[in-house]
Design a protein around this nucleic acid. Sequence first.
DNA 1: TTGAAAGCGCTAACAG
DNA 2: CTGTTAGCGCTTTCAA
Lengths: 337, 337
Amino acid sequence: MKKVSLKDIARMVGASPSTVSFVLNGKATEMRISDKLADKILKVAKRENYQPNNVAVSLRTGKSKIIGLVVDTISGNFFASLARIIESEAEHFGYKVIYCSTGNEIKKARELLGMLYQYHVDGYLIIPTEGLEKEIENLSVNRKPLVLMDSYFSGTNLPYVLVNNYQGVSQAITHLIEKGYRKIGFVCNDIPMIQMQERKRGYLETLQSNNIPFNKRLLLETGYKDPEQDIVQNINTFILKNKPEAIMFAANYLGVYGLESIKSLNLSIPGDIAMVCFDDHEIFRLFSPSITSIQQPVEAIAKLAIQLLMQQLGKIEIKDTVSQVEVSPVFLLRNST
Amino acid sequence: MKKVSLKDIARMVGASPSTVSFVLNGKATEMRISDKLADKILKVAKRENYQPNNVAVSLRTGKSKIIGLVVDTISGNFFASLARIIESEAEHFGYKVIYCSTGNEIKKARELLGMLYQYHVDGYLIIPTEGLEKEIENLSVNRKPLVLMDSYFSGTNLPYVLVNNYQGVSQAITHLIEKGYRKIGFVCNDIPMIQMQERKRGYLETLQSNNIPFNKRLLLETGYKDPEQDIVQNINTFILKNKPEAIMFAANYLGVYGLESIKSLNLSIPGDIAMVCFDDHEIFRLFSPSITSIQQPVEAIAKLAIQLLMQQLGKIEIKDTVSQVEVSPVFLLRNST
DNA sequence: TTGAAAGCGCTAACAG
DNA sequence: CTGTTAGCGCTTTCAA
């Protein structure tokens, strides 16, 4: 039982492959195929359960109707919610989505991008990681539609959409200050990407504009690749040595580790120490006390990203020429501050 | 700047496409191509950064070196950890993985499977959902290598690998009984798939074999598609009305909802109510008190699934003919019981 | 030791 | 209104 091909259909109907192709692609009227023939073709195709061979279509047309979504890790909240929305948005335009995760390995990332390229995906949605700059630049040079999310490379002109990291942190720190906290710690990681830099800048400048001198001992930079154990340990000593009244964690996984640390230290939130986290997590809502956090407007990000991509794919007209957009975060006031 | 094709290379070197193809596919010696020519071809290909067009290769050979992983929802712990391992295992065999999520919509699931089929993925890893039986059966009939995970359809002979659900629940319930609890509630959902049925059976039979009469008011079956709010509300009234001394949740998302409910009821764990959950979740480890749970051996599941798939793909020899395997769960004793 | 040629399944320009 | 034909880029048989 082999799959029926377009040619098979043609033979059965007694028409030529091209005619069948036109009919099946809805170009029957355009090409002025007689209704009779068109109907017959449609009927036979249906009866035989004809499925076009997309590989052949792709080879011929150079289009695949697939967009590739490349992320560092598919675990993780942010990605999980992102993926669902992106998928359904893409569907509106007739595109399918395939996911690839790089596991934060530059080598693997390169391979994956290569694979997507070789399979001729029509567009790329990428959460960029350190070291991937050249490859991404390359896609762009080859005129591949692409949109970056969550971060971007400064100095390039690639389209991106991300949350306003500076604003989010600034809001949180201001909130802490208003609540009377002065000794505010900040725990971030050493990723050199723009989003983390912006968060750090948010911390520093907001302190400054509130006339609170920056104490560098209150800034903890953890290694991104360090094992969980080590990071929790670092946070432990950080808290013990510097006794911050409040801590802001610059990423949700850091907040989770922070929770672990605070728990192991037997400190109470917000009594002994207040906390707020950038990027929400299910745990923060459930925890007792619930944890105040800065939520990324995932839905908006996803929709905008697809929009920018579809513009490049010529699927929607370009309303405005802005292709680099930042969206406002959502401040979720809970009980940890 | 167009991509260089194999033909381009041939022209540059002054050889025929077939010769180039042989060399590039490592069949140079087999075909007795002279070393000189082979070297030259390799060098030029490298210089020109030749990348084969996989679409063309796939069309020609009917193989894609891709396996499709179809899950219900891409969020979720279980899947997230599964994916990572599957990916790296597949890599050993030279396969790439693409993910698709069905969002638990049968229509979308069908489309996705169709897409994978049309793109000629070489193998399928599927977490089956209700209603997908015929499509999956169909793949099998068409001799597509495939392995089910997490669940399966009784009455079919498809290969699968999943945790021993019965054993996991039985172990947990036994534990509760040993701890002295008698009024043990069980919260599951209404998915008619085998894994949930097995968990329910584990509950029922373990009570029975311990001479605890089954009280059907202690069994709560929640709608899988119900919104979170409703389910939490259901759990609330379930607890209030029936006052179980302990509850087992049959899935990790249910456990999380349970936590919410218990929190909103202001009950203490395990003082007022003990709890244990099937399928671990990061929250359970972090929560105060930490929540006892039954962990799925994700790594073992992933590795076995790939193994079964590679057997079908002829990539490894078949050691034993067992293609339906259950693995033992891991009991994680924590502080909620 | 190498090359010519056919063809995977489809689309689209061009000819009737 | 419909069919012929030429490929998309690659692999592989067969012939030289």
